[in-house]
């Protein structure tokens, strides 16, 4: 290809500018420049800077000195930090499992032949599109201890006699923020899995029906295996974003009551920005990295399973 181009080239085209313009290495370098600059300066460098900050004693308004692993040692003895790790785990595991189960169910429902399918699919995605902070404010109001609509409804139905303070009691608050997170996450899981479901050939189901396969058998032996690569990716994204969640907690509880809903991200923010302990905040944020790496590796190996679907062996 390139040979034919260079032989047909007329003398007029060999000016210096033209030659540079056709030099692939130079062009690649030029094309990569804007993105590389943005990402190296504002993503890679801060990542490294964060690791460094975690090993200093920097505070707001005061440059820090290197202190080694002191921040991590003090975090290790910090009960609140371990509570936030526990909360983050609980939040991530419960929310992800429920999001997956309900999201898959919703995807299966939307994959059926139903009236107004496109319209329903469009409005299902709304919670994902609307800014999280703003929908979290709506949840805040729904959970309100004096005028909460859930409490009012339950009281009207005679199920409770006092209003529930959803965000005031530790375990209730945990459940409440998890429910809000699930609400926000279901559309993403459902619509992504729906896209995966639509790629499964209908003929497989027809064959299974003729062979007498029950709906459960069809789901178990056709839908689930063919969907598993997409499930792996979708759930990695979901776990990643749930694990590092900040907005919902910040709006609903700011980590309270009694730090019961503090996630690692919110604790890191609270210590670093209002608290001024930049180094300690950075150390907490860095403590999230191993978990994120584990999630990414999980996704990578989840993707590997694709081979047997293309006729190869596991």
């Amino acid at each position: 290809m390139s040979v034919s181009v260079s032989t047909v080239r007329t003398p007029a085209r060999t000016s210096r500018f033209e030659r540079i313009n056709d030099n692939r290495a130079f062009l690649s370098w030029l094309f990569m420049l804007p993105a590389a600059l943005l990402l190296l300066v504002f993503l890679t460098y801060p990542l490294g800077l964060g690791v460094w900050l975690g090993m200093t004693d920097t505070k707001i308004g005061r440059a820090g000195e290197f202190v080694g692993f002191e921040n991590y040692i003090s975090l290790f003895r910090d009960g609140v930090f371990w509570l936030s790790v526990f909360n983050t785990m609980l939040y991530t595991v419960v929310a992800s499992v429920v999001k997956f189960a309900l999201g898959l169910w919703l995807a299966l429902l939307l994959n059926k032949h139903i009236p107004f399918k496109a319209f329903i699919r469009a409005i299902v995605l709304l919670p994902f599109i609307v800014p999280t902070v703003l929908s979290a404010i709506a949840f805040w109001w729904i959970y309100d201890s004096q005028f909460g609509i859930i409490s009012w409804t339950l009281q009207r139905m005679g199920l409770i006699d006092r209003y529930i303070d959803f965000l005031g009691e530790p375990n209730l608050a945990r459940a409440s923020v998890i429910i809000a997170n699930i609400w926000r996450g279901i559309p993403f899981v459902a619509i992504s899995l729906l896209a995966g479901l639509q790629t499964i050939p209908q003929s497989l189901y027809e064959a299974a029906t003729i062979d007498g396969g029950s709906p459960w058998q069809q789901f178990r032996h056709i839908t689930l295996p063919l969907l598993s690569p997409i499930i792996a990716v979708v759930m990695t994204f979901s776990v990643l974003f749930t694990f590092t969640d900040f907005q919902l907690i910040y709006v609903l509880t700011r980590g309270g009551p009694l730090n019961a809903t503090h996630l690692m991200a919110t604790l890191s923010f609270q210590r670093a920005i209002p608290g001024g302990q930049l180094a300690e905040g950075a150390a907490i944020a860095n403590a999230m990295i191993p978990f994120l790496l584990a999630a990414i590796l999980f996704s990578y190996f989840g993707l590997q399973r694709r081979r047997w679907q293309q006729g190869g062996r596991d």
Binding site: A35, L39, F42, L43, Y45, P46, L47, L49, G50, L53, T58, L240, F241, F243, T244, D245, F246, A265, S268, F269, A272, I273, L278, G281, A282, A285, N286, M288, I289, L292, I296
Partner: peptide
């Protein structure tokens, strides 16, 4: 690398970015 960069969450970048 670009795909991995997509997986880096803002909540671990905001402190160093704030100092920058």
């Amino acid at each position: 690398a670009i795909f991995l960069a997509y997986l880096v969450p803002p909540s671990i970048l905001f402190i160093p970015l704030a100092t920058m």
